[in-house]
Simulated scan of single mutants.
Amino acid sequence: MNRVVLSAVVVERGAMRYTPAGLPALDLRLAHESTVTEAGHPRKLGLELKAVVIGPLAQSIGRLELGSAHEFGGFLASQRNGRGVVLHITELL
Rank of each mutant, 00 (worst) to 15 (best):
P42T: 04
L93D: 08
R29C: 06
L57E: 07
R13G: 04
L57K: 15
L64V: 10
Q59E: 13
D27W: 02
E38K: 08
S34Y: 08
G62A: 10
R63F: 01
V52C: 11
R80V: 15
S60T: 13
E71M: 12
T35C: 04
L26N: 13
L47C: 13
A15D: 09
I89N: 04
L26S: 03
A51I: 08
V86N: 06
F72L: 06
T19K: 09
L26H: 10
V36Y: 04
V36R: 14
L66A: 00
G62V: 06
F75S: 06
E12Y: 08
G73K: 11
I61V: 15
L92D: 06
L26R: 06
R29E: 11
G46T: 11
E12L: 07
L49K: 11
A58K: 00
S68D: 03
L26G: 02
G14Y: 10
Y18N: 06
L30Q: 02
S7K: 09
L26C: 11
I89K: 12
R13K: 15
G67T: 02
R13D: 02
G40R: 11
A15P: 01
V85M: 15
P20N: 09
T90R: 07
A21Q: 14
V11Q: 01
L45F: 15
R3V: 08
R43H: 13
L6F: 01
V52W: 00
L45E: 07
V10K: 13
H41F: 14
L93G: 09
T35K: 12
A77S: 14
R63L: 14
S34P: 07
E65F: 07
G14M: 01
M16L: 10
V86K: 12
R13H: 01
G22W: 05
V4R: 09
A69Y: 04
M1E: 12
M16Q: 00
Q59N: 13
V52N: 06
A39G: 05
S68P: 00
E65M: 03
A69P: 06
I61M: 03
R43G: 02
T37H: 12
G84T: 09
G82Y: 02
I61K: 05
V36S: 06
R3A: 15
L28A: 00
F72P: 01
P24N: 14
K44W: 06
V86W: 04
E91G: 13
S68T: 09
M1H: 14
A25G: 01
L23F: 05
L93C: 06
R80C: 09
T19W: 03
Y18V: 08
P42S: 13
G46R: 15
G22N: 07
L23T: 08
A31S: 10
L26V: 11
V36D: 06
P56C: 03
H32D: 09
L92R: 00
L28Q: 05
E33M: 01
V86S: 10
P20S: 03
E91L: 05
N2M: 05
I61L: 11
D27T: 06
V53F: 08
H70A: 00
E38G: 04
V11A: 01
G82F: 04
V4G: 03
A58V: 07
R17N: 03
P20A: 10
S34R: 14
A51W: 04
T35D: 08
E91K: 14
A25E: 11
V85A: 15
L45T: 11
I54Y: 10
